[in-house]
Design a protein around this nucleic acid. Sequence first.
DNA 1: ACAGTCGGGACACCCCGTTTGT
DNA 2: ACAAACGGGGTGTCCCGACTGT
Lengths: 224, 224, 224, 224
Amino acid sequence: MLINDHSVSNSAGGSGRRMTKGEQTRRKIVAAAAPIFNQHGYEGSSLAELMAATGLQKGGIYRHFASKEELAAEAFDYTWKTAWETRIRNIDENSPAPEKLKQLVANFVERRAPVCGGCPILNMAVESDDGNPMLRERVAKALRSWMAFLQAIVKEGIESGTMRVAADPKTVAVLVVASLEGALMMSRIERNHDSLRRVQGHLNRYIDNELAAAAGAPELAGVL
Amino acid sequence: MLINDHSVSNSAGGSGRRMTKGEQTRRKIVAAAAPIFNQHGYEGSSLAELMAATGLQKGGIYRHFASKEELAAEAFDYTWKTAWETRIRNIDENSPAPEKLKQLVANFVERRAPVCGGCPILNMAVESDDGNPMLRERVAKALRSWMAFLQAIVKEGIESGTMRVAADPKTVAVLVVASLEGALMMSRIERNHDSLRRVQGHLNRYIDNELAAAAGAPELAGVL
Amino acid sequence: MLINDHSVSNSAGGSGRRMTKGEQTRRKIVAAAAPIFNQHGYEGSSLAELMAATGLQKGGIYRHFASKEELAAEAFDYTWKTAWETRIRNIDENSPAPEKLKQLVANFVERRAPVCGGCPILNMAVESDDGNPMLRERVAKALRSWMAFLQAIVKEGIESGTMRVAADPKTVAVLVVASLEGALMMSRIERNHDSLRRVQGHLNRYIDNELAAAAGAPELAGVL
Amino acid sequence: MLINDHSVSNSAGGSGRRMTKGEQTRRKIVAAAAPIFNQHGYEGSSLAELMAATGLQKGGIYRHFASKEELAAEAFDYTWKTAWETRIRNIDENSPAPEKLKQLVANFVERRAPVCGGCPILNMAVESDDGNPMLRERVAKALRSWMAFLQAIVKEGIESGTMRVAADPKTVAVLVVASLEGALMMSRIERNHDSLRRVQGHLNRYIDNELAAAAGAPELAGVL
DNA sequence: ACAGTCGGGACACCCCGTTTGT
DNA sequence: ACAAACGGGGTGTCCCGACTGT
């Protein structure tokens, strides 16, 4: 719903029509390239690796993508889409907003991403920062879609009374995303999950104590 | 105290005696290479750039460093050292621990790093994660030194009574580092400082409300 | 029959079917590289020379050979094959063994090799001796094939009665090869053919007087 | 007596006067460089190896030699001189010429050269053949000195009656040198001494049967 | 349309033999 | 005798375009 639809040239909705052979090949290339780019980065991934992973020759790849950069961009979208699907799993539409937030955090911390290499935003943020505008734009778009999702949850919680009105949606979203991504970075450096778990604990307490509407208690001003 | 001193062959401690010409050149190379590696990453930095930045030819560089990787490692240390000096500036040794923490956060958020490209840990974490053990070790060491510094402040605060005994030093350190680094990443993607400032606000409140010893008030159990 | 056939992927035996363009290019590269390696040696031949000789760029060469060493090995085989064809020319299958030997010697001494630089075994023996196992194996294989050919002639001569039973095939082969190669080396140092011709004269007398079955005369014991 | 005297700048005959420090260093460099050049060839030997072997820096080497080529030339002379001393050992000045020849052959076949890498003439002949005139001249000179020595023995043998008058000194020298060098090459390829020993056997018989004056028997015309 | 072979240059890192200042 | 810097050249790999065949 949220992110991006990746609608590609031909009709092909989710269901009905067939895919041309070329379209199938294109998707296979993207799926094969995604973990490579996510693990090694843009510069660190060579066409030779992509050839090996796809089983195609260079010509076969370049027929479908104008450049390595274009392929990398689509691969990023693919990686982000699958990562996203993992992160929003088990979010019950009807549960209160604080529960949704905690489930999102849990998904981030506990679920292994289906595409190797971890969070693509983290992986690409630094490299795309320097002179790779096409990729940069995709990363920014992904980040904004994630932020928007979190903000929407907070807003809905405020409106439905499950979250305090003092909770600022943007700030909450920033806190959650920043501390999760930062902890992920630390966990990768240390090669353990300690940082992620400590951050999860903190976020859960933060959500319960400072964001969730106090049951039967009047709110205090200015808590956030 | 901090990272490494790069003390090289000749006598010369930090201050007194002279430096050989080679040593001077070596340092100039490191200083010139540091922003390049920090901005473009290891793979993204070519010897041609380093030659242009140093004004030396390849032979002149390779006389002092056995490989690009070795130079990158020293450049990382240099970048980290200067970044570190910026971050601990204006930390009054005698001020209470909560103030120290807030000053650290403020330094991170408000000061521009003297070496272009931002936090070297963030910049190198992802790239070094994949098959660059020499660099990886340096990154991990830098992260640990930062964490140790934060933990030491919290411990000292607890012992001197300026912080609550319930504050867990490791968790506090993780929270501060993770949220700052994550916010930095977001700020770079969005090219503004909004995320950093929101995180700073949150951390300051967190420090004041949950970590600092309540003045003249008994602590409540279980806050952290 | 001889060394190796380099049969590559496509069907094409020696004669019938077509060659792909790549196969043609590959052969042209080998043919162009052969005299260079044979004249300058492996270390002494640079890719720049090979590029100039083939008219291709590095990319064009490296498309067909994984490394300089692999190309050198194939070039050696090519050089040896053509040298071999020169050496066995005019060997009448039906002539007696002593005649065959003398013709072989004459071919070695009198014919200019079609690939510049002289005998590839001599050229590569020293260089491949030190740390170039791939090439070394090819040289050894070539030497053994030459030795085997000479030994086979002697054996056949003994069986058919044209050579004395006292002639030891291996020793004869060693003598012929060693003195020819040594004389070739000397002739190259002196830049004349004097040494080769003197050795040819000696070998011819040796073949006639000590190896050939004495016509109508009983052999004397212990001549060889 | 024979070869070359390597007389270097300063007085220093074999005996009396002292050597300057520079002269000592120069000789140490040559002695250290000799096995390296003899084993790896001229192109295959790098200054880094020479630095490691001599314990000197590049500047220290270039103080004594104008170029790598000049050092290689002197190293060749050194290697040849020591090889030569090994080859003429145990040659009794008063023994008959055939004995001298056989002892020479035996020395070549059985003695390990004091400088690693084998016969320097063989090692350098091919490489110096192409565009290294300084080295080429030294190799040619060494070969000629060896040839002259052999021819002198034969001539003396003829004059003193221990060898047949029909023995042609030049041809004998060529045969001995060529077959020994060729067999050495083969032995190095095969990494055994079989070829050398077979050639030694042949040369010994050849010397006894065709060169040595038949004791008490009239010579037959035209044997050689 | 699509897949694949082939070749092109540019550039990567590294090491070479050499000269210079001291 | 060394420390320092120099350029140029070493091999190998890069990404990509153009051509060839299905």
